[in-house]
Structure formats: structure tokens, C-alpha cells
Design a binder for these strands. Structure first.
Lengths: 206, 206
DNA sequence: GTCTATACTACGATAGAC
DNA sequence: GTCTATCGTAGTATAGAC
């Protein structure tokens, strides 16, 4: 499947060098095919770029299907169960951000966030949207003191703690005095992340 | 001062399009000068890029001087004072991330985090390093239960909540159902951020 | 479908006038 | 110091063979 091979390579190159910085010649060469096959399969550089966004959205949906399962029938849960599920979801996000696999597509997404194009719209509509509303419905049970229209804000602040592990990876490594985050550092970060999240979710009533 | 003008424009263009995507022609044109003045002042495109990093580091140090002031003599503080200072610092970071000014250089920094070059080293050594150690010394008083070598991790997780306001701005806007973050949304986010941070910092003892 | 060959455009660097 | 002019390279797109 030449299309998938081109997309995988392109996500890496676009993420690393940006849309203009990446070259279709290099992408084709690294995929062991001719540059013109990009035109054939995707219509051109722009088409390949959008195909990358769709591919990432699909992978995200797939990877976070277990998380989404935990947001089902949220309205029937008591507060403790909702908190427990949110802790599990945050930890899954953290594991994703820590995982090697996220390196390539995270670069792509973070880039799009800075200067959103049509590709961001596809990422949001194709994956992020469902996660945000799912987490929002759990937050509504966990923190009934927060007005409905502020749940999205709270979700993003929670999510920020995991996002930083990718979006500011270079600084995180400096802060930990390491050159990369492996099993030991990851476990420590997740431990603090869990206790932070628990502290946040337990608040608002006392 | 043509150098400053070129740097200001370049930070915007490099942040938007990346190192390769930005063109010295456009940067020069937007600065109302000839392309060859980049060669004259900075030796070339790479020199201009590094000058941008140094410029941002200097601006960051300047802007966060008040924060740094709050980290002085941290070892003499009691826990409540340390927490109060950390809340103030986190809020200042949040204001920076929410502020229009951060838009340009934040793009530049986030890009460097994804694929660090020599420019990241300059950003870290020139600005981030001092902030991290400063916050670390306050955290040591606020959360004496956390081992010393894990304070950097906690600082980054805290910082992540503010970082998300810039690094994932597009998603934050979607989550809030707005197209931009102005005074009202900013105040709401900072309110939640403060209570989240307080909950985190108050933890660890009970 | 995948290749080679080529057309056209834009890039960064540099030389040299002023 | 700042400009114009030009060189060599590398980019995307496309036409056409197989």
C-alpha cells in the first residue's frame, strides 16, 4: 500500500520541517517511490498534507477508543466513579504523550495548533471533538460546582498537564536532568499527574 | 534600528512557517529593506534565526523579572507564603500566555521544542533555566513531601496548565466555543487555574 | 500505477555600485 | 549600510513512456 507508506513518511517530515520545509522529493525518496506518485494518489502536496491529518485523526480515534468507552453513560455515575474514570483517562493520555509513537504525529498536531489550517479542522472534527465532550460529561459529575459552559475550560487545563509532556518535551527533559523520558521518568510523572488530578477533581465542595 | 526590525519580523515568519518555510526575501520585504541586509547584519538566514532566539530570551527575562523577584530567599519562607507566591507566579505565566504579545514568540518556542536546535539551547540557558530553578525552590517549601529530584517534574506539570493556553490555543477556543480568548474568557480560565493550583499545592500532607 | 524527463518558480548567497 | 543584479540550487507540478 503505497499511499499509507507515503502518509507515514509525510507525517514525520511535515511534523519535523513544516509544510513548506518538507519536500515532496524527499518524502517520495524516503518512501521508495517517485515524486509524481504523490500527484497521482493525492493530487499534490496539499492533498498529501490533508490526508496526513485524516490519517492521524483515525489513529487517534482508534487509540482512544478505550477512553471513550469510559465516558459512556456518564450521567448515571456517582461522583467517586466519575473521578475514578477521569483519573484513568488522564493516565491514558499521559501514556500516549509519553509513548514513542506519539512523537511523529504530535509534532504535526502541535504545528497545526499554532497556525491552524483546514488540517486542524479535520483533526478536531475527526477526533478531538469526541474526546472533549466525553471528558466534559464526566467532569460534570465529578465537579458539579462548575457551570456547564466552563467545563471545556477545566478539561483543557487538566489536559494541559499531559500535553506539556509532548509540546514542551525538550524543557521537561531539561527539568528532569535527562535526555529522554523512559520508563522510570514516565512512572514518576504519571504518579504526580494522578495525585494532581485527584486534588483538582476532589476540590470545589469543601 | 534595522536589526531589531528584521528580528521582529523574522520571529513572526519563522514562528509561522518554520525555518525552511520562512523566506529571507519576505522577511526583508516586510521589514522594508533589501534581502542582502540580512547577510550584512546577521551573516545569513541561520544567523538571523539565532538572533531571534536571543531576542526572545531577553524579552522573557525582562517580562518575568517580577516573577523571579518572588523566588528570592525562598528557603526562608513558610509553606503558606510559598504557596501564595507560586499562585502569583502561575497567574503571571497565565497572563503571559493569554496576552497578544506572546503569540509571535510562543510559536517560535513551541516549534523549537518539537525539534530542538541550537536556538533552543539559547532559549533555555538564556531564560527558562532561571524560571525553572526559581519555581523549584518555592515548590520545595510548598510541597516538602516531594523529593528534591522530582520538583522539576512537578514544576512542569503545573506549568503545563498555563502552556496549554498557547500551545493548544486552537483547541482551547473550540472547547470554549469562541474564536478568541479575550478578557472574559481569560478571567474565567485564570480563576480555575488558581483553584487547581491551590488544590495541587495544598496536597501531599493530609 | 509507477516511472523518467522537463518546465517553471522561488530560494539563499554573493558580488559590486553607491 | 543599503541597494540591485545575478548565480546556482531546489522546490512543485506536469507531460508522457511503460
Amino acid at each position: 500500500m503505497m499511499q499509507n507508506r507515503l502518509i507515514e513518511t509525510a507525517i514525520d517530515q511535515f511534523g519535523r520541517f513544516g509544510f513548506d520545509g518538507a519536500s515532496t522529493r524527499d518524502i517520495a525518496r524516503a518512501s521508495d517511490t517517485a515524486m509524481s506518485s504523490i500527484t497521482y494518489h493525492f493530487g499534490g502536496k496539499q492533498g498529501l498534507y490533508l490526508a496526513c491529518a485524516d490519517h492521524i485523526a483515525a489513529k487517534l480515534r482508534e487509540r482512544h477508543a478505550p477512553s471513550m468507552e469510559l465516558t459512556k453513560d456518564a450521567q448515571d455515575l456517582d461522583r467517586e466513579s466519575a473521578i475514578e474514570r477521569l483519573l484513568a483517562i488522564v493516565d491514558m493520555y499521559a501514556q500516549t504523550m509519553l509513548h514513542q509513537d506519539s512523537k511523529h504525529w504530535a509534532r504535526f498536531i502541535v504545528r497545526e495548533q499554532q497556525a491552524p489550517t483546514e488540517a486542524f479542522e479535520r483533526l478536531y472534527e475527526g477526533a478531538m471533538k469526541y474526546m472533549l465532550t466525553g471528558v466534559g460529561s464526566l467532569l460534570e459529575r465529578a465537579r458539579p460546582d462548575i457551570p456547564r459552559d466552563e467545563l471545556g475550560a477545566m478539561a483543557m487545563l487538566l489536559f494541559g498537564q499531559t500535553l506539556v509532556l509532548r509540546a514542551a518535551r525538550a524543557t521537561v527533559c531539561k527539568a528532569l536532568g535527562t535526555t529522554q523520558l523512559d520508563e522510570a521518568e514516565g512512572a514518576m510523572l504519571r504518579r504526580h499527574l494522578r495525585s494532581n488530578t485527584l486534588a483538582i477533581l476532589s476540590g470545589g465542595t469543601q
